[in-house]
Design a protein around this nucleic acid. Structure first.
Length: 155
DNA sequence: GGCCCCCCTG
DNA sequence: CAGGGGGGCC
């Protein structure tokens, strides 16, 4: 289907349900299979996202950072560029400032958990997931355009 | 049952 | 990323 488009949507929503996904893929005739596949994609997107976030948070702790407030994520930082490369290869769109903030918040959440030794608990990431899930935003209307991707001139 | 999430693999 | 398993919630 539209993998590249789905990845760009991740900039705005990390936890889209099948209902809204169907709205933003008007040119797709959904069935059980491709619906599950699309939902699965976002699950995979999240896993990649959280793995990177945890890695950088642990690095910050190892580097001696003692406060989440000290952690910032700039658009030209290694972490942000890494994420952008994954979700927005070739810079098809300009990532929204809101995503940068979500990344920064996520990094801080992971940092606090690790710094406070909460990561020894069984499902310590669950709480973080809930926080991030609340930061989803409505998707821009241009995603509804069936030929929008083609207009970007990308394969 | 259906839908969704996470976890772990390959 | 896809597959498969486990568990939660209608």
């Amino acid at each position: 289907m539209h993998l590249r488009k789905a990845k760009l949507m991740f900039f705005y929503t990390r936890y889209p349900n099948s209902g809204i996904l169907k709205i933003y893929f008007p040119d797709v005739s959904f069935n059980k299979n491709n619906t599950a596949q699309l939902v699965k994609w976002f699950s995979n997107f999240r896993e990649f996202y959280y793995i990177q976030m945890e890695k950088y948070a642990r690095q910050a702790v190892a580097d001696g950072c003692s406060s989440a407030d000290e952690l910032t994520v700039a658009r030209d930082s290694e972490l942000y560029r890494h994420l952008n490369l994954h979700y927005n290869r070739n810079n098809q769109i300009e990532s929204p400032e809101s995503f940068r903030m979500v990344v920064e918040q996520t990094l801080r959440e992971f940092f606090r958990a690790i710094y406070n030794k909460r990561d020894i608990e069984s499902s310590w990431k669950k709480a973080i997931y809930k926080v991030i899930a609340r930061m989803d935003e409505p998707l821009p209307d241009f995603f509804k355009s069936a030929n929008w991707m083609e207009q970007l001139g990308e394969v």
